[in-house]
């Protein structure tokens, strides 16, 4: 019995990781329609930040210090990327795809030159070792920490988008760029802010992922496909959709893998998303709009 409880928790936990890596993308891809293949490398930048900060501050507090630092660092990288390249390519999705793919290869090689090709390790803080036992099932603290972090991030983003004037402008630009522009919204400034936040969230995801996985130059490639999968299945720019999609895929993955194998679970996740898009091409959640897009 406890094994099934563990498995339910695992599904939630996989979902939270998926949501974590996809959160930044719901902004840059979802809101702005930029297919940013360098998103994985922004996650990587966050992971390396955790490694660097760990060397300076020691392992017990490094994680908490690394989160804001990574947000700022990855956010700035995203901002530079937007200013230098992507700004010139709006409305040309295929071109942004190629350009950001090039950027991602570039960043991987830069990481390899700075930190070396082998993986590095950031020690997890002692207080995240072990786990709490609930009804015979172990819930690792590291997983609970990620779930909490995701919950906080989602709440923060939701408040930003619904309560703050900046968030309102962001939604306006997303729904109808021209109309927003003629209404006096500085769309360029909104774009920059959106890209900064989206990239920063990727950086934070990178820090959290060091608790579970490797820190290496090719780390981003392991997560990028999953991230796009969640955003596409959830509906572009839909926070609610991303939450549903991430948890849904997490539960499918954990249940199928428990009964069969990891490879098959991965395949079935793809099949599920393809099938979903046949029925709902806009994803799980979509906004009705009269914009002529």
């Amino acid at each position: 019995m406890d094994i099934y409880l563990s498995q339910v928790f695992t599904g939630l936990s996989i979902g939270s990781v998926l949501l974590l890596i996809a959160l930044g993308l719901t902004f840059t891809f979802g809101q702005m329609g930029v297919i940013n293949l360098a998103h994985g490398e922004l996650i990587m930048a966050g992971a390396y930040t955790a490694y660097m900060v760990g060397g300076v501050f020691g392992e017990s507090v490094s994680l908490l210090v690394a989160l804001p630092v990574a947000f700022a660092l990855a956010g700035t990288m995203g901002l530079v990327l937007e200013r230098v390249l992507i700004r010139r390519l709006y409305g040309r999705p295929l071109d942004t795809l190629l350009v950001t793919w090039g950027v991602s290869l570039l960043l991987q090689q830069v990481a390899r030159d700075i930190f070396g090709a082998p993986n590095v390790n950031a020690k997890a803080p002692e207080w995240l070792g072990g786990g709490v036992v609930v009804a015979g099932a172990t819930l690792p603290y590291a997983r609970l920490f990620i779930i909490a972090l995701v919950a906080l991030s989602v709440t923060g983003i939701w408040l930003y988008m619904t309560r703050l004037p900046q968030g309102r402008r962001m939604r306006a630009v997303m729904q109808n760029r021209q109309l927003a522009a003629v209404s006096g919204i500085a769309t360029q400034a909104v774009d920059q802010r959106t890209f900064f936040i989206g990239s920063g969230l990727a950086g934070m995801a990178g820090v959290a992922l060091t608790l579970l996985g490797p820190i290496g130059p090719s780390l981003g490639t392991a997560y990028i496909v999953d991230a796009f999968l969640v955003v596409v299945a959830g509906g572009l720019g839909q926070l609610r959709g991303a939450v549903f999609a991430a948890i849904g895929l997490g539960v499918i993955q954990s249940l199928v893998e428990f009964k069969t194998q990891a490879s098959l679970a991965k395949v079935l996740c793809f099949v599920a998303v393809v099938a979903l898009l046949q029925v709902r091409p806009q994803g799980l959640v979509s906004v009705r709009s009269r914009a002529l897009t």
Partner: peptide, 20 residues
């Protein structure tokens, strides 16, 4: 006997199977 794709990073289910 468990196989995971190359580059796989999610091992919580495998860990659960080991415990089982």
């Amino acid at each position: 006997e468990e196989y995971t794709p190359l580059g796989h990073t999610e091992y919580s289910t495998v860990v659960n199977k080991l415990k089982d």
